[in-house]
Amino acid sequence: MAENIWSKAPGRLWRRVLRQLRRDWDKVLLAILGFVLFFVVWHYASVIVDNPALPTPSKVLHALGESFKARPVNDLNPWTMQQHVAASLKRILYGSALSIVLAVPLGLLMGFSRRAEALFIFPLELIRPIPPIAWLAFAIAMFATGLDVVFIIFLGIFFPIFVNTMDGVKKVDPMLVDAAQTLGAGRLHVFYKVILPAVVPQTMTGVRVGVGVGWMTIVAAEMVGVSPGLGWFIWTYGQLGRYDLMFAGMLMLGVISIVIARLLIALERWLQR
């Protein structure tokens, strides 16, 4: 039985991909075209501008390839791209985990209880508009290197998740709660069989937005000398005038963000089953 599942699964996946391709071939084609167009425009822009600050895509891709190779220890940047990415990913992961653990329960509570909302809303609204980067000096003085970045990222991710979760609870259709109650559900059942699944999509939107904000803040947070890290990589090579490597780091950041966003969408679908 078990063998069967494993031997069939790749075939099924392949067939699904093929079916999707057959149905959406025009979109796939357009996406590829858009991709090519992006590089073409970039290339000619670089040729026309003729300024080292805007290297051609081929130079950037070459630099990107180089950045993956092992480096001498006495180099300014002794780390490989993998190490930079891993370091930044780890910080994003910690920051997200911390945000989710704090923002989701708080959002649920404040969406549920007007008293809790009245109690907490003012301090939260006060902190929310402060850009995470404004906390940088505080974070550096307060936390160990690396952890300061996690704190900054946490601030960036926390609020989108919190606001979306709270809003999601308020928007749960009261009819669904009524329906659950007439089916015999008590408060606890209503909470984890109705409120929670109803809120998941919006919370996940918050996570997606939040992680996006996290990637935006990481460059700024790491540029003060937290290495290794993608932010440090981009900042340092920018300072050194190695724009090919700088753009390589930026490209890497974009690619990772896309992958993470896709993974989160998949996770959301899975959570909602």
Binding site: D173, M175, L176, D178, A179, T182, L183, G184, V194, P197
Partner: peptide, 15 residues
């Protein structure tokens, strides 16, 4: 509310 009285809603109220 209780399970001994089943309710059916105009808006269906399905999950």
């Amino acid at each position: 509310p209780g399970a001994d009285r089943g309710m059916i809603f105009q808006s269906f109220a399905l999950f």
